[in-house]
Design a protein around this nucleic acid. Structure first.
Length: 177
DNA sequence: GGGAGGATGGAT
DNA sequence: TCCATCCTCCCA
């Protein structure tokens, strides 16, 4: 059965308090849900990237805690949204325990490819920054029971060559086959 | 206060 | 390959 209203479950905050690589994997196949005055829209997450702590030179927190990155030091389960190239909103979910800056970038869903187009099409922007991923915030994620585990592929993250060979090449991008 | 550059995407 | 477009961060 594919009855999402019957079987889907809002991801608990504890889901996000785990290792960022595990969260990035487990988010694949989950349903991202937006609720606004326009109604409710959802799409299955099919591509993510992990950014793992201050030692990760591709992670914004590699320069330490700043005004922009301070939200990454919160406990997992809140949205980290920032503007890229002056026009694209990037949607990330903070993961891990408090004071460990790690996030998962939601790069694409079944209906929208690319992190910039995803947010544009879903009408998401910086107003969500810092809010928790729960229904009352208007943006949250639900799990969908799967009959079998999907085959997950990994590869280097996109657009982070500046981070140096070691970190740019780590297989921190996850997507479906 | 200035300047460089960026977790993109669309046009050329 | 180029570039729109603007926020953040670093440096002076």
């Amino acid at each position: 059965m594919n009855n999402i209203f019957f079987k889907s479950m809002v991801l608990k905050q504890g889901f996000y308090h785990r290792n960022v690589l595990q969260v990035a994997r487990d988010l694949l196949g989950c349903r991202l849900i937006v609720k606004s005055e326009m109604g409710m829209v959802s799409s299955i997450i099919c591509e993510t990237e992990a950014y793992d702590g201050e030692q990760d030179l591709a992670c914004h927190a590699c320069k330490g805690k700043t005004k922009r990155t301070s939200i990454m030091y919160d406990c997992g389960g809140v949205w980290y949204v920032y503007l890229c190239y002056g026009m694209h909103w990037m949607l990330n979910i903070v993961t891990g325990p408090k004071n460990y800056p790690a996030t998962v970038l939601i790069r694409g869903t079944r209906d929208f490819s690319g992190p910039g187009r995803l947010t544009r099409n879903l009408g998401l922007d910086g107003s969500l920054h810092g809010k928790p991923a729960v229904p009352s915030s208007g943006l949250w994620i639900e799990d969908i029971p799967k009959k079998k585990s999907p085959e997950i592929l990994t590869g280097p993250r996109i657009g982070v060559d500046y981070a140096g060979k070691e970190w740019a090449q780590k297989p921190y991008r996850f997507w479906f086959s």
